[in-house]
Amino acid sequence: MSGVPGVGLGKGLAVTLKTLVSRSTTQQYPDVEPELPPRSRGVIALREENCTVCMLCSRECPDWCIYIDSHKEEVVVPGAARPRQRNVLDRFDIDFSLCMYCGICIEVCPFDALFWSPEFEYAEYDIRDLIHDKDRLGTWMETVPPPPSHDPNGEPSKEETNAAKKASAS
């Protein structure tokens, strides 16, 4: 094909030589934490106080890996005619060995109880240990980063519009 034999090889070696003298891009991972974008889907964090046990996440999950148990409690509200009923969350487990990291649970949650966190270091030696309960999911809440602001050409984020609404109402 090419005229002189070996020209292709020579060109390739020139690339290798160029790379040899350029800076290395190795990331020192265990020593240096990687910088992950705020939208990274690492692990699902739970804010337990916000959960009303509506079961939407558990029903919408494509492989049904969220397990929820709850009981009802009566709350006596002073001044009200009858005591109110309230759902109390007993169990909220996510089986991360089944989870497909699609984010549907977070999307459907109507009360902002579920969030994505870029945290990813939760490997286990046994697959059964990948079921994480509400306490473990709760500990990831502090790793949830604030959402990035939107491109000015698009619509502002839900958080921004809500804040603007609140500001104008008060």
């Binding site: 090419s2 070996g6 292709g8 090889l9 390739g12 690339v15 290798t16 160029k18 790379t19």
Partner: peptide, 14 residues
């Protein structure tokens, strides 16, 4: 072009 030069006309690859 690095990738291109490295392999496209490499004699062994050809």
């Amino acid at each position: 072009p690095d990738l291109d030069r490295l392999i496209r006309k490499n004699d062994i690859f050809l």
